[in-house]
Every structure is written in structure tokens, then in C-alpha cells.
């Protein structure tokens, strides 16, 4: 069969044209799905916040100053957002590193500095091993009632899942970071203004 000859011009041109057409198709798909994806992520986040702080009715993002102070308090762990849930406390979105990259999770802390719950929104841990941090029934509840103002002390009694040590430690790091955010920033900040 006669094919286009592999001359430098034909090779450069064909790759170039393919890439341009492909990027156009992808831009179009991206634009079509962008809003829905953002919406889905918002719904997932809201649901996770609701799970860790069931009594809260409204979540408002804290202002930029508090967020940057929170980022500082958390150290290496990335803080994606902090939500003020009024009387119920705060929902802290952290992204600690697990085994397969950052995991996105919400830590709820109430006004007295007790951890109310931990919920993982997305993770890329090894299916069947690291992903057990989401499914193991006794893993995530163990963080409940940890004292966020003395988080390092609370974190000493911690059970990792065997076979998922790195993933478990990732989750623990996220809770630790949230504890530091509470102790260094939120306990002085929002508590006063709300009462």
C-alpha cells in the first residue's frame, strides 16, 4: 500500500496537525465538562463536611489571612481550605501525602478542640491495600475525640492498618496538621468572634 513518505517535512507536519486537532478536541471536552466536574467536587466536599460535622447547617470559607496562617501551622502538609461551621466547629481540608500521592480529606474539629470525624474525599492509594484506609471500619473512627489542642500527645496511640502503613501514616499526618491548625490558629481566632 502506498503510504506517505517519511520525509522530515511530512513527519513534522503530520505530528503537528495531529497534536493541534487533538488539543482542539480536548479543549472542547474540557470546556464541556468543567462546570459539572467542579460541581461534583463541590458536592463531594460538602457531603464530607456534613459527615464530619453533622449538626452544622452552613459552611463558610475562612478569609485569606486565616488560611495562610493555617497553612503555616500545618507545616509540610498542604491545607486546601478551612470552613467555619458556626457553633459546630470547623472543617479543615488537608491534603497529606500517602503512598500514591496526596489524599484529599476533611477533618472536623469542634469548638472545644475535639476531632469530630475524619473523611477521605479522594485518594490514589493501592487498591486493596492502601485503599483500606477508606474501608476499614475501625480505622477512621479512631481519630474521633482526639484532642486537637494536644494533638501530638493524642497521636501517640495510633493503630495503622497492616499492609497500609504509609497510607495510614498519611491520614495520621493529615489529622496532625489539622490539629496544629486548630491549636495555633483557630482556637484563638474564630472562638472569640463567634461568642
Amino acid at each position: 500500500m502506498d503510504r506517505a513518505p517519511s520525509t522530515p517535512t511530512s513527519m513534522v507536519l503530520s505530528v503537528l496537525v495531529t497534536c493541534v486537532v487533538a488539543s482542539a478536541a480536548l479543549t472542547f471536552t474540557y470546556e464541556m465538562t468543567r462546570e459539572r466536574i467542579a460541581e461534583q467536587e463541590r458536592v463531594a466536599r460538602e457531603k464530607a463536611l456534613k459527615d464530619v460535622l453533622p449538626a452544622a447547617t452552613e459552611f463558610t470559607a475562612v478569609d485569606a489571612n486565616v488560611l495562610s496562617a493555617a497553612e503555616e501551622a500545618a507545616g509540610d502538609t498542604q491545607v486546601a481550605a478551612v470552613f467555619d461551621a458556626g457553633e459546630s466547629g470547623w472543617g479543615i481540608l488537608v491534603a497529606p501525602r500517602g503512598y500514591g500521592g496526596p489524599m484529599s480529606m476533611v477533618v472536623g474539629v469542634d469548638r472545644n478542640g475535639k476531632v469530630t470525624g475524619v473523611k477521605i474525599i479522594t485518594q490514589n492509594e493501592t487498591p486493596g491495600l492502601g485503599s483500606k484506609v477508606m474501608t476499614e471500619p475501625e480505622f477512621l473512627p479512631q481519630f474521633e475525640a482526639w484532642d486537637a489542642s494536644e494533638i501530638e500527645k493524642a497521636a501517640k496511640a495510633f493503630d495503622a492498618i497492616s499492609g497500609a502503613t504509609k497510607s495510614s501514616n498519611g491520614v495520621r499526618k493529615g489529622v496532625l496538621a489539622a490539629g496544629h491548625v486548630y491549636a495555633d490558629v483557630l482556637s484563638g481566632e474564630g472562638g472569640g468572634s463567634k461568642q
Partner: peptide, 15 residues
């Protein structure tokens, strides 16, 4: 298939 030069076919397939 007629306009894809043989030497750059794999990159084009992958794109």
C-alpha cells in the same frame, strides 16, 4: 493510515 508517515506512526497513535 495513508497520510501517517511510517517513522512517526507511534507518536501519532499515542496522541
Amino acid at each position: 493510515r495513508r497520510v501517517i508517515p511510517e517513522q512517526v506512526r507511534i507518536p501519532i497513535f499515542i496522541v
